[in-house]
């Protein structure tokens, strides 16, 4: 969308805004650094992967996770103090789930990290609700026609995360090893594990 020239122009305008806000005593540059660091430190797909690995290895936890996602991820120390609700949707033999925010970019940031550019694009937002099967194929995920696809549209209050299927042949792996298999796209539903 933005070329290099536009990028340089908006970069200057952002710096100018930071300077103005500092001069006015509204926000200091240090405060911006601090909130940005905190924002990035608390948000990683490794967190969602830990939740998934726990659900794969602890049946009681899996049930709690699917019943009340917010409470279950708080057990592991995530989304504490968040006003948002989390609903975890489970992939099975019969159903595959994928998440979107058609209106903008709502996303379970704490569990998945900052969202990728394509998640915020008009192309993904407009198309995944109309033709999910072909959209998933563009990501390299080709599902049999016998698999139903459910698309979950996020809102300001409710965020979704996919619980992928545990791959076969992973019975001997530890929870940490299982977590390492889980990618961010698998948590969105644009990939399988």
């Amino acid at each position: 969308m933005s070329g290099d020239h536009e990028d340089a122009s908006i970069s200057r305008r952002v710096r100018r805004l930071e300077t103005l806000l500092e001069e006015k005593g509204v926000v200091t540059g240090g405060a911006v650094d601090e909130v940005l660091d905190a924002f990035l430190a608390g948000a990683s797909p490794a967190n969602g992967a830990r939740v998934v690995a726990r659900a794969w290895t602890d049946e009681a936890y899996r049930e709690r996770l699917l019943t009340d996602g917010t409470a279950a991820v708080r057990e592991l120390g995530f989304m504490d103090g968040s006003f948002q609700r989390l609903r975890v949707v489970e992939n099975t033999d019969a159903t595959h789930n994928v998440i979107v925010c058609t209106l903008c970019s709502c996303y379970p940031l704490a569990l998945l990290g900052p969202s990728p550019g394509w998640y915020k694009s008009e192309a993904y937002r407009s198309r995944v609700v109309r033709e999910p099967r072909s959209v998933l194929a563009e990501f390299g995920l080709r599902l049999p026609t016998s698999t139903d696809i459910t698309v979950w549209d996020s809102s300001a209050e409710t965020r979704y995360m996919v619980l992928p299927r545990r791959p076969e042949g992973t019975e001997s792996l530890t929870e940490d090893e299982l977590a390492a298999l889980v990618t961010r796209n698998a948590l969105i539903g644009t990939a399988a594990v």
Binding site: T102, P116, G117, S126, R127, R130, E138, F139, D153
Partner: peptide, 18 residues
């Protein structure tokens, strides 16, 4: 912003993944 289901936005740039 309410683009869900709208046609014509073209292919998804799956490489836009910073």
């Amino acid at each position: 912003n309410d683009v869900g289901g709208t046609q014509g936005f073209g292919a998804i740039d799956t490489t836009d993944d910073p």
